[in-house]
């Protein structure tokens, strides 16, 4: 347990995005697009590439909301809006060995807070996939 109790000034995560991530070593992005009936915002074919670490050769299918005018909770809602009717397909993909997550990303410091209201939490839970938080410092 930490010894300090609430000594930070609260602030929001910055430069955020929310992304449905489908990952698999032999992922076929076009097949995922067809099964979800949804165009991705980005895909990556499996295999080595110049900008990837040597061990990262999996394929990716991404549906991302990074609209700057929205906060991260609203960006999450937008992604859920797009995929919640396809939750059954997400379950199938996960059962077939795809790693399926809803990822929330932001730049953070000490005391950066992401708050999710119960309605949004329930909508994420209804997808049957985990929420993955990923953060970065300002080193960019």
């Amino acid at each position: 347990m930490t010894t300090a109790s609430y000594t930070y000034a609260e602030r929001k995560w910055a430069d955020t995005d929310a992304t449905l991530v489908v990952r698999k070593d032999d992922l076929d992005p076009q097949a995922v697009t067809a099964r979800l009936g949804l165009d991705p915002t980005a895909t990556r074919l499996p295999g080595p590439a110049r900008l990837r670490s040597a061990g990262d050769t999996s394929g990716l299918w991404l549906y991302q909301c990074s609209t700057a005018a929205l906060g991260l909770p609203e960006q999450i809602d937008r992604v859920v809006d797009a995929v919640e009717e396809r939750a059954g397909v997400l379950h199938e993909l996960a059962a077939e060995g795809h790693e399926v997550t809803l990822t929330a990303f932001g730049f953070v410091g000490n005391g950066s807070v992401l708050e999710i209201m119960p309605q949004t939490a329930l909508r994420i839970a209804s997808l049957g996939i985990p929420l993955e938080l990923r953060v970065s410092g300002s080193e960019r």
Binding site: G109, N110, G111, V113, V135, G137
Partner: peptide, 17 residues
């Protein structure tokens, strides 16, 4: 449900934010 990040090396980040 909220998620809060804690960082001992947050000075540069805080200035950025």
């Amino acid at each position: 449900l909220s998620f809060t990040t804690e960082s001992a090396a947050g000075n540069g980040t805080e200035e950025f934010l």
